[in-house]
Design a protein around this nucleic acid. Structure first.
Lengths: 149, 149
DNA sequence: TGATATCGTGAAGGTACTTCACGGTGCAGG
DNA sequence: CCTGCACCGTGAAGTACCTTCACGATATCA
């Protein structure tokens, strides 16, 4: 009984580790890091944002966002524009290059999904998704929150 | 078709994020970090080990292990003993306090498994585990490897 | 207008990683 | 025996991610 649950946790933990490794290495090949990429995705989803908004969305300190944006700006993936009404704030905006890169990455993500789940019959896949949804619900209740997607 | 697979990937990714957050915060409450704890677990599984063996097992550089062991030694969780036959090497050994702590953490892990998977009927749990096993197999083929459990 | 909150960033610090260089040691082979 | 090479662990230097605290500039509200 409990063994099966621990087995499930172990599987999930191992998936976590391997997936993290895969993400880190494939992003590194593109000259990116996980943290910076997360910011990029958020920008793509939300459009030009203040650094404060990004900090809240990612669940990190505002100071940290300054550093991440510094790196992304230096890589030419992001620009700092003046906020139209609030002169304290800056609007972080994706460059066309970043947009292209993100589109490419979305394709890569679909490819990964295909590789990982392609062999599973639809019913098992559905079972997996719904089981993970229940787990996610419990998990969300456990974790004090931090970001959104 | 592809949508369901991407949905599955998204679920797995989100579980990864939340679980990582949970681990990090609960370990921090115990004055530990993920990296150091991984080393501790490895020591518990393998017994006293040289730093080189730990580096290989964790998939990190030997230099990094030096730093991790430094921190753990300072926290009184680990000691450096001379290797009985090889004077170049040192044997990293768990202190009784670390053993107790690890036992406690194992209980915590069982509790987490219970909380996350307790509501799932056995058949769905089995389905989850076997699906994750298949995914893990594909994942292992994808990732250049690094550590063991 | 003046107190107060907010935006972004400098300064300082901690952890987790890396590579490179180097001293100490183990282990053959000549 | 002793020389050369491989291996162990660590100092030095560097990168990335993250934090808190302090501060100047700006917005806001009474």
């Amino acid at each position: 009984m409990a063994d099966a649950r621990i087995a499930a946790l172990d599987r999930v933990l191992e998936v976590t580790v391997l997936l993290g490794r895969d993400m880190t290495t494939s992003l590194a090949a593109a000259g990116l890091t996980v943290a910076r990429t997360t910011l990029l995705w958020r920008l793509r989803a939300a459009g030009p944002s203040t650094q404060r908004a990004l900090a809240d969305a990612l669940g990190v300190s505002a100071r940290n966002v300054t550093g991440l944006v510094d790196g992304l700006a230096e890589a030419g993936l992001v620009t700092r524009e003046p906020h139209p009404t609030d002169r304290r704030a800056t609007l972080v905006t994706l460059t066309p290059r970043a947009e292209a890169l993100l589109t490419e990455m979305a394709a890569g993500r679909a490819g990964l999904a295909e590789q990982l789940f392609g062999g599973l019959p639809p019913e098992r896949l559905d079972g997996l998704v719904s089981a993970l949804d229940e787990v996610l619900e419990r998990l969300r209740a456990l974790v004090p929150d931090g970001a959104a997607s």
